[in-house]
Design a protein around this nucleic acid. Structure first.
Lengths: 201, 201
DNA sequence: ATTCTCATGTAAATCGTTACATGATTTT
DNA sequence: AAAATCATGTAACGATTTACATGAGAAT
């Protein structure tokens, strides 16, 4: 779907020229929340965007620090971005390592599962604090065209972190409420006495 | 992180042998909610798992329909899965095309944005209905070791769909509440009279 | 002395999607 | 007559990650 190009165009849409390095940092504080990218990806995609005429670049010679290439969105780029923004978005297939693990939490020792959930909760809480801080900053800033979108994205982030926190609490309660028979120790077989054959034979 | 292999091992963890085709269908109704995969991926990864001894397979000759290969998890595979499940999960970097578009919704015509949000909301509502139906089914089923995990994952899904629905409603309200001056028509320049130069010059 | 920031890239490997390919049976 | 189900794969392409590579200046 080539969304990375649109992520980069989004970052350049305010008309402010940015280098690949700038974009990497910029991603970290806003667009990266909904579309993460690493530096090799960004440098390569910027090259592709330039080839396609959606951005232009200029070499900025610096003394005392490395030279840099700053990229600006072109009129063609702005048009391509707005056309894409107006299209319908398909439902995203989510990939979440924690939830994948959760599938097997019924086979894991209760206390271990609870501890992992606590770690996970802490990560999401941190993230929520950050989103709230950013929201305050943006709300206090002047109303540029990008402000509404940014605030909406932050709000989505906060609502999702709330969902995660609530889920962690419910999951801990559900695991604690299990009958004792269902709990297993880690690294051990379920019932070594009554050994079961696997389907391989 | 090789999570696809663990997704497949999760699907085979109940000891029930399954073909690649079975796994594809199985993914669609459960594990696919948190770790989506397509059939070429599944067939290739099953081959890798077999090479590494985490699954074994057997050719089942059929008449009237194509032969199939059924895969079973090995003891080594079960051990690898449980070891992985017990590890801490990193925060997932999310990639969401809708939220990426939302960044630019301040530059889009209000009614168009509202229409897109309505489409998006409908998709998530459908998904929530499905999760609720599955929850009822699973709650009515006997308590196998996999049940707790499945219910927890479904609960996470429902909480997230609720967050999406609420976000869509809030976003529509926020867009409607905008001052008229901020609204743009689609496919047109902002103010063609006062043409701005791009930073390229 | 070491680490951090600035700044850019290449190379290799892995992961993921889409299209191509086949073919019998069952259902609409 | 057409489409869906069952069942497996390959090929080509595209996206993403991790490691390799460099090097000056500023800060701890």
């Amino acid at each position: 779907m080539m969304s990375l190009r649109y992520a980069l165009l989004t970052a350049l849409a305010d008309g402010h020229p940015r280098s690949g390095y700038d974009l990497l940092a910029y991603f970290d504080g806003s667009i990266g929340f909904v579309w993460h990218a690493t530096h090799p990806q960004i440098y390569r995609e910027l090259d592709g965007l330039r080839r396609d005429g959606l951005v232009s670049n200029e070499l900025v010679v610096q003394t005392g620090r490395p030279n840099k290439k700053v990229y600006s969105i072109t009129e063609q780029g702005t048009h391509a971005l707005l056309t894409w923004v107006a299209t319908a978005s398909p439902l995203q297939m989510m990939k979440d390592g924690m939830l994948l693990r959760t599938f097997s939490y019924g086979r894991l020792d209760s206390e271990l599962a609870v501890a992992r959930l606590a770690d996970y909760r802490a990560l999401h809480e941190e993230r929520m604090v950050r989103y709230r801080e950013l929201t305050n900053l943006v709300e206090a800033s002047p109303d540029r065209p990008s402000r509404l979108g940014y605030l909406l994205v932050l709000r989505a982030g906060i609502l999702h972190q709330e969902a995660y926190l609530r889920w962690c609490d419910e999951a801990v309660a559900a695991i604690r409420a299990r009958p004792r028979a269902a709990r297993r120790s880690p690294g051990r077989k379920a019932r070594p006495a009554a050994r079961r054959r696997t389907a391989r034979r």
